[in-house]
Design a protein around this nucleic acid. Structure first.
Lengths: 66, 66
DNA sequence: TCTATATGTAAAGTTTCTTTTACTTTTGAT
DNA sequence: ATCAAAAGTAAAAGAAACTTTACATATAGA
């Protein structure tokens, strides 16, 4: 799975720390997500999508191997 | 977080086992999700939403305590 | 250049997801 | 009422998410 969190952050002019605080996770969690270190929970993707006012599918994308 | 997987399954006339096989998880995982035993990963919610031809937000819903 | 802010990374630990196995209960059809 | 399929549940084990702490690197502005 990939995601466009970094781009969305840029649009909203938020740092990783800003986003982390906004959705209630650690900054490292945001960083790891952006670097595709792991797959976030559905609660996290729903929160992120809500914050960025976009459907989950516009931010998180399935890949071949998923 | 809540979800309407059971309803979607009914619409598509699928058993828990059918759905489990379709998205590549165990039947108990589907059952546990329906019974709100845990929060699935974003890969799972994307797969389920895709299968049911609905946005993730139409199947998984954030709650107060999320 | 110096400094502050932002990002990247890593290791250890805790929590949560997911599987496997296996058994019980419910439901629906005959 | 019986039988089979579906759903519910539970425990143990493994895998993955997420936190905390801590440090390294990058970037931009004064």
């Amino acid at each position: 799975m990939k995601n466009s969190i970094k781009v969305q952050r840029a649009i909203f002019d938020m740092t990783q720390a800003d986003l982390a605080k906004a959705i209630g996770v650690s900054r490292q969690t945001i960083n790891a997500m952006e670097k595709n270190k792991y797959v976030p929970s559905t609660v996290l993707s729903l929160k992120i999508a809500k914050l960025f006012k976009k459907p989950v599918e516009d931010i998180f994308f399935l890949e071949e191997d998923d």
